[in-house]
Simulated assay, not measured.
Amino acid sequence: MTGEAVLKSRQGVRIRETVPLTGMKRAVADHMVTSHQQVPAVSVFADLEMDALLAFKKDKLDPVAAGTGVKLTLTPLVIKAVAMALGRFPLLNAIIGDGEIQLLDEINIGMAVALPDGNLIVPVIRDVGTMTLLDIARESNRLAAAAVAGNISLNDVRGGTFTISNVGAVPGTLWQTPLVNHPQSGILALGRVRDAAVVRDGQLAVGKLMGASLSFDHRVISGLPASEFTAFLAELLRTPEVLQ
């Protein structure tokens, strides 16, 4: 309408709409700035072979899950594998506090959940190393449903020691460089499972691969053991029987 003031950015560009940076969005924004400023993060990337895991899930786990009424996706299997890898590489399950690196005695994995309003929340599955795959599936389903419904409790988002983010729902997304969830020392972002050319026994074949991006606090762990973590995780996923 003629006569109305035109809002412009500091660079003089017209503003179509403003979105208040308040509530959860402001809290997430502030936390991400803190993480980016305080954590000297480095990322390593890997392609994880998923053929054996997919076959194991279909042939061995899905029939059991169906009998219990539990919805089983790939996520609980990856969470279990990550917990086992963290047991082998405890510096990725650590924080810096009081001038020292503190190796944590619990493996509590946060799983990033995108909310319908575009916000992000990270519910925490506690003591994953002591849980069965079906237990992890039940808890991850409960937390995801509570997060989307807005019924998540403060206790459900506290105490995380490592975070997993899954961007596989977005077509074409293979890798990203996730921000470490301060004060944690590591975060793993997973991409979409895709068909890709692989070499097996010297022969070209089509395999199922999933991109993985590990960002880590370089003050706590260096590049070699971080890369060894992803290699060990890849081996666990190639031999999924060990996840039971």
Rank of each mutant, 00 (worst) to 15 (best):
A29V: 02
I15N: 12
L61N: 02
T73L: 10
Q102K: 14
P171R: 05
T18Q: 12
R126C: 04
H182P: 07
F89M: 03
T75W: 04
R200Q: 13
V78H: 00
K8G: 09
F89P: 01
T18L: 14
I221W: 02
P123F: 13
T75S: 15
S140I: 12
A196N: 07
L61W: 05
A46V: 00
I187W: 04
L236W: 11
D156I: 07
K58V: 06
A85H: 03
T177K: 12
G159V: 13
L74K: 03
T18P: 03
T75N: 08
A41W: 02
V82D: 02
S165N: 15
G118V: 00
A114S: 15
G159I: 11
S140P: 09
A146I: 07
D217A: 05
E241Q: 13
V39E: 00
D195M: 10
Q102W: 06
A146E: 12
V42K: 07
V206C: 08
D30W: 06
L91T: 05
E228M: 09
A65N: 13
L209M: 13
F89H: 13
D59S: 12
L61R: 10
Q184R: 11
V157T: 15
S165P: 11
V28L: 08
Q244G: 11
K58R: 14
T2R: 13
L120K: 01
T68C: 06
L7V: 09
T230F: 00
T75D: 06
E106P: 04
R88Y: 04
L237D: 06
Q176G: 03
Q203V: 11
L134Y: 11
M111P: 01
E235P: 00
D30Q: 15
I79Y: 03
R14G: 04
L77Y: 02
N119M: 01
V44W: 00
V39I: 14
I101G: 03
L233K: 04
I152G: 04
P20I: 10
H36V: 10
V206S: 07
A46H: 00
E139C: 08
L7M: 15
